[in-house]
Amino acid sequence: MAFAQAADGARLYFRLDGGADKPALVLLNSIGCDLGLYDAAAPLLLADFRLLRLDTRGHGASDAPSGDYSLDLLAGDVLAAMDAAGIEKAAVVGTSLGGMIAMELALKAPERLTGLVLACTSAAMDAAAWQTRIDTVRSQGLAAIAEMALGRFFSEDFRSLHPEQVETVRAGLLATSAEGYAACGAAIRDMDLLERLPAVTTPTLVIGGTKDVSTPFEGHGDRIAAAIPGAATALLDAAHLPSIEAPAAFAGAVRAFLGADPAERAANDTLFEAGLKNRRKVLGDAWVDKSLAKRTAFTADYQAMITRYAWNEIWGRPGLDHKTRRLLVLAICASLARWEEFRLHVRAGLEQGGFTQDELKEVLMQTAIYAGVPAANTAFTEAASVIAELGL
């Protein structure tokens, strides 16, 4: 077994897997779990990375000193483990508490990080609720909160279909030091991250779980993504522990983000941001924000592609103004019976002042001649419905 020594003398258990020629990837566990949190995802990552996993202080085979811990202390532990493993720089993936430690690490030692993946985590939690949980664990032990924790860790469907995995996590939770859990809970209670996140310079991916009730993406992950400059997002069909509930999707999101060449990623980011400006001008902030929030690991690449190419390369060309392009889109969508897209652009054009109702009518009259009366008839019906919804 390999151990690192923290600054205060605590022993920290770590495991190193994969070839020394691969870029290093550090995996940080959730509160109540140990490095086994990534057992299902690790084999899917080893082709691209050398993996450093460690038991967070207070968990697994690491020491559990008494007294409250801080995120700064826990981030220092990660650096100690990296040093012991001979790793100068690494990308860091953290789930829940692990994500909080990763954010602190990105602020504490940005020169040691090449990338940051924050899964199902938060930068600000209810301190009073965590104090209650800390008091319960210290007075009654982890059995008192086990069922509540497992209910937050996994979706009902996963618990029903994979009881053996749930029981494995339950056993690990109950074997965790109650003092270590409570001490880490204090780090969550006392964290002060949200206002500091704009200073993060490490390329960052924020992963949310669509079934996560512990740190829902809306209100937690979205706030992190908004605070960290240039942060990307991905939503997975999972609850609070996606590396267990959706390991292939989780590993795929990590590999897709961290595996990109930095220069290529920077160029793509520039094109994406340029396309996003046009997309917002044409469709409006509310619709674009909603669309981006719905991205998953399965759809994120497609969304990035249409933003870079359709909205930057095409909508950004100087040959036609946006009004002309809007009206062309309406005529083409009506001709091809692409009614979902047609309604979207009717709504956006009227809301954004991109064209008038009279101009819309003329486009549909023209469509009747060149695409046929049935197409125009449906287009008038769909457009009238949108106009009524807008109260115009």
Rank of each mutant, 00 (worst) to 15 (best):
267 A>F: 09
376 A>P: 07
26 V>W: 01
380 F>V: 03
139 S>P: 07
133 R>N: 11
363 V>I: 15
308 R>F: 08
192 D>L: 08
177 S>P: 12
120 C>G: 13
16 L>A: 11
45 L>E: 06
340 E>M: 05
285 D>C: 02
281 K>R: 14
214 S>N: 12
132 T>A: 13
14 F>Q: 02
229 P>I: 10
341 E>H: 03
83 D>R: 08
55 D>G: 06
247 P>S: 08
27 L>K: 02
385 S>R: 00
70 S>A: 13
291 S>F: 12
21 D>C: 03
106 A>T: 12
291 S>W: 13
280 R>E: 14
236 L>V: 14
350 L>F: 06
277 K>G: 10
344 L>Y: 02
53 R>I: 00
322 H>G: 06
190 D>E: 15
65 P>R: 05
115 G>I: 09
109 A>G: 12
376 A>C: 07
323 K>A: 14
144 A>L: 06
82 M>C: 13
201 T>W: 02
103 M>W: 02
351 E>W: 01
296 T>L: 10
371 A>H: 00
98 G>N: 09
242 P>F: 05
38 Y>T: 00
146 A>F: 03
142 L>M: 12
87 I>W: 02
351 E>G: 00
32 G>R: 00
334 A>P: 06
20 A>N: 12
116 L>Q: 10
345 H>L: 10
299 T>I: 07
43 P>F: 07
67 G>D: 12
102 A>G: 15
244 I>F: 05
374 P>N: 08
67 G>C: 11
96 S>H: 02
246 A>N: 14
310 A>N: 13
157 D>K: 10
124 A>C: 13
114 T>W: 01
388 A>V: 04
323 K>H: 13
31 I>E: 05
342 F>Y: 15
